[in-house]
């Protein structure tokens, strides 16, 4: 067991030595892989952020009913009574027009504008949660409330969020496709790198085969090389995406100053970051495995003599 570990450690060391011997070539390969990987990963980050916010909004679809501006207290109370009795309604919240104005002031940072208004432009409103949140049920509820007296406007709040959600699902599919294609490219790049290595080390491989090296022993440093190169590409991609998120957040910071709200992109989670290292490493390993298996069979000592 110890010997086995020591042998692996030695192969690993030999792999590093090989990387160090041709640092420029290896660095360029890693850079290419990293840049290629950063495309789908960057897209993934953007979409994950958008999706997180759209989920928040779409999770609890609500129907907003706005009263006419000149509706009286009694008329509002009547609507409230109707909502209480309606079997489609789970619960509802009444937002008086004064409170709505306060919320607008605080949330939007438009306090100056709001203060300068001669009168409150906002109506009383009800925010209604439906018992059944399917689009059909929500639309039925909307259509019903719309016919009640003194209700000026009814709006399905979740509709746009749902549309965004659907669009984002499409985006995710695109990311998956792009990711799959670039994974294929990573395997191909590794395959070719390892092919060249095997061919340039043909003599060495022949000799160690003669001395009694098993195929596993010969294959090992190449597999490590493939995995390391993939992992290195993952690290580069992570750095690129991190840099991108940092830059965007920096600029978003100014933007949110202007709008007085906090807009921040979330970075890759720890799990995502680890997959970004592990997944390319596995692909590199796989590409190297394919390549060595294919080219090692062609090298037999003495066969050409």
């Amino acid at each position: 067991m110890m010997a086995w570990l020591a042998q692996h450690a030695r192969s690993f060391g030999a792999t590093f030595a090989r990387l160090a011997r041709a640092p420029l070539g290896a660095a360029l390969n890693i850079l290419v892989i990293g840049i290629a990987l950063s495309l789908p990963v960057g897209l993934y980050v953007v979409i994950a952020n958008l999706q997180a916010s759209s989920h928040q909004l779409a999770a609890e679809p609500q129907v907003s009913a706005f009263m006419a501006l000149d509706a009286s207290r009694a008329e509002v109370a009547q609507i409230e009574a109707r909502l209480k009795q309606n079997p489609l309604v789970q619960r509802f919240r009444f937002v008086p027009r004064e409170q709505a104005l306060q919320e607008l002031k605080q949330a939007s940072g438009l306090a100056d504008v709001v203060d300068s208004l001669p009168q409150n432009p906002l109506p009383d409103a009800f925010v209604v949660n439906a018992r059944d949140s399917t689009p059909q049920a929500l639309e039925a509820l909307r259509d019903e409330i719309r016919q009640w007296p003194r209700v000026a406007h009814v709006q399905l709040d979740a509709a746009w969020a749902r549309r965004l959600d659907a669009a984002l699902r499409l985006g995710r599919l695109a990311v998956a496709l792009l990711g799959a294609l670039l994974a294929l490219a990573l395997v191909a790049v590794t395959f070719n790198t390892i092919r060249l290595q095997v061919l340039t080390q043909r003599d060495e491989i022949e000799v160690i085969k003669l001395i009694g090296a098993t195929d596993a022993f010969i294959r090992r440093p190449f597999l490590y090389f493939g995995a390391l190169q993939g992992c290195g590409g993952g690290i580069v991609a992570w750095l690129i995406v991190s840099g991108g998120v940092y830059l965007l957040n920096h600029n978003l910071g100014e933007l949110s100053h202007v709008y007085a709200t906090l807009i921040q992109l979330k970075h890759l989670s720890l799990g995502d970051s680890l997959s970004l290292l592990a997944f390319p490493a596995a692909l590199g390993w796989f590409g190297a495995w394919l390549s060595v298996g294919r080219h090692l069979a062609l090298i037999e000592p003495g066969a050409g003599k």
């Binding site: 003599d203 001395i211 009694g212």
Partner: peptide
């Protein structure tokens, strides 16, 4: 490979690894 480990091989052209 395990058969070959029973042997020590000496070659006319040495087959050393020059790296």
């Amino acid at each position: 490979p395990f058969l070959r480990r029973k042997f020590g091989l000496v070659f006319q052209d040495h087959k050393l690894l020059f790296d």
